[in-house]
Design a protein around this nucleic acid. Structure first.
Lengths: 252, 252
DNA sequence: GCCTGAAGATTGTATAGTCAACTGCGGTTG
DNA sequence: CAACCGCAGTTGACTATACAATCTTCAGGC
């Protein structure tokens, strides 16, 4: 007695039945969105879903397991499944690759390499990269343009041992970020964003007005257990915005 | 011929076997981290995993399906499974509730409510909330302190119809954000972050030095299909940083 | 040479059942 | 009364099998 994929409705609609596990997922996350189910509420057990939707337990299990992975519900063996507290930890903002972002807006991305030298870590840079004095580093300064308008100043320090060819790369074609993510699998990234007033050199390179503040992002990346790169990404406050949208639907 | 949960090793270790599907997931994501598998590489099919790990196809399927959900691999019926491109869209930054954040740092959170009035939408606010002129709104201005030091100015407009008690709430105890997320299920949130110079009132309320820039976050939230709140969250550039760390391990 | 169609590989979905581990409850026992 | 035991409900992990949809490959026919 096999279900033939059109069991639920039974009437018209021969086009394409939605999978059973998705039907169950939707029925629950819709109830959450409508407010019928609130955080802490108990939801039907797998056995009850088996009876109500006429599916096997594996199918009900898959629906609930995916809802748990999405953070919609929490489950506990022996007790049951319950609606989760709503995203207790705040929202997320997306940080993109500057070149992709510019191109996606339909503009041309251009980069001017101000410097790209190999040097030995002094007191300051050794602290930044958590290495000992004299460690070989690359130090690059690049200005990124959107249609000839400078929108990002990138100053970056990279461990020479992890990226020996960094000094020879042509960063007018692909960003250091693109190069580094390709040669070294990134294990961890840390971002910090703050608003400051630029120093004289930054003001010149980004052609800023005298009173214009900048949005400065500090990005550190780890690979194979080591901190491999430290970058300051500086944007004119007037010509750049970090932005992101987050929709609950993504979780269902 | 049932496997008794200690099949793999067979020798010591009676403590607690890791589930088979997790063993498979780790073996693949470890190979990605070590660099043995690179983006675009083909990984064993479900049938091959069945043979290699001596599990049923459903178990191999679960491992691969979860790796796909995590964005580690991409799968295509008829072709096979392949290592995904490395997070093609950038990293994510976390945006937290200001009160939680302050408390987590071990400091006291305090709020001063500068105003919290009901008003009718004028041209400017009607545009912000995408409503018609004269719609009833609440308009609140709150200064958040970390141990008596002002760290956030929150100016917020809220649809009165969705939160009729907003004007009576005591926001020195719980933030508007906490209140709103409790009474209305949030469907969508949009954030924009930029660096600007503050106006005179902002400078006064946050006790800023004359040349100090601010980090301004614009947050809009939707509930039940409507834009219900528009907020400007303004931080002194010198006393606040958005930050976030992202580890690949989270996906496995 | 080129189109067609069959076969095989691969993933997607689903069923039916098993054993294990955890939780809460009620009844039994000391 | 309190401690213990066992049972029912629940989730977690797994097996074995089945059929459908999609894609590749290759042989056969024109």
């Amino acid at each position: 007695m096999k279900l033939q994929r059109d069991d639920a409705g039974g009437d018209a609609v021969t086009k394409r039945a939605t999978p059973h596990y998705k039907v169950i997922k939707r029925s629950i996350s819709d109830a959450v969105k409508k407010g019928d189910l609130k955080p802490g509420d108990r939801i039907p057990s797998e056995a009850e879903l088996v009876a109500r939707f006429n599916v096997s337990r594996m199918t009900a299990n898959r629906a609930l397991r995916e809802l748990q992975a999405a953070g919609v519900i929490v489950r506990h063996a022996g007790k049951g499944s319950f609606i989760a507290e709503p995203a207790p930890i705040g929202q997320l903002i997306e940080i993109r690759n500057i070149a992709d972002e510019v191109r996606e807006r339909g503009h041309a991305w251009r980069a001017r390499v101000v410097r790209n030298d190999e040097e030995r870590a002094d007191a300051e840079t050794a602290a930044l990269l958590q290495v000992s004095l004299g460690t070989r580093l690359f130090h690059s300064v690049i200005v990124h343009h959107e249609d000839d308008l400078p929108i990002q100043l990138e100053e970056r320090f990279v461990l020479a041992s992890i990226a020996p060819e960094y000094g020879q790369r042509d960063f007018t074609r692909a960003t250091p970020n693109e190069y580094l993510t390709r040669i070294a699998p990134i294990e961890r990234v840390e971002h910090r964003v703050s608003a400051t007033m630029p120093d004289e050199q930054t003001r010149t390179l980004l052609t800023l007005a005298t009173d214009e503040p900048v949005l400065r992002m500090t990005r550190r990346t780890w690979s194979r257990g080591r901190l491999v790169s430290h970058a300051w990404l500086t944007h004119p406050g007037s010509r750049f915005e970090l932005s992101a949208a987050f929709a609950i639907d993504d979780r269902c």
